[in-house]
Amino acid sequence: MFYIYCPYCGEHREEEEFHPKGQAHLARPENPDECTDEEWGNYLYFRDNPRGIHHEIWVHAIGCRKFFNVTRDTQTYEIKESYRMGATPEVTHANDPLS
């Protein structure tokens, strides 16, 4: 079980209050009408599957119902940080001491 910190409630809560919503920081092509099929396909269907640091979206579904981001290590399952939408993660693959 995860014990997840919700940056909006300012508290740790049990995992059953949350839902995972997949990879975070996906940038939608600015002009979908003019991007290539490959760019649009990558945006729509292709996701990273890293070993190590992964940024993902979670929603506090049974709580404040806000979406936020979590940085999680996919090897150890350790949650490194959670941060609000629009914020920049402090732990990234580049500065992870273990990777």
């Binding site: 809560r13 049990e14 059953e16 209050e17 049974i62 709580g63 404040c64």
Partner: peptide, 9 residues
């Protein structure tokens, strides 16, 4: 607090 209660909320 908004939370899980029994199998509901």
């Amino acid at each position: 607090v908004n939370t899980v209660l029994a199998k509901s909320q």
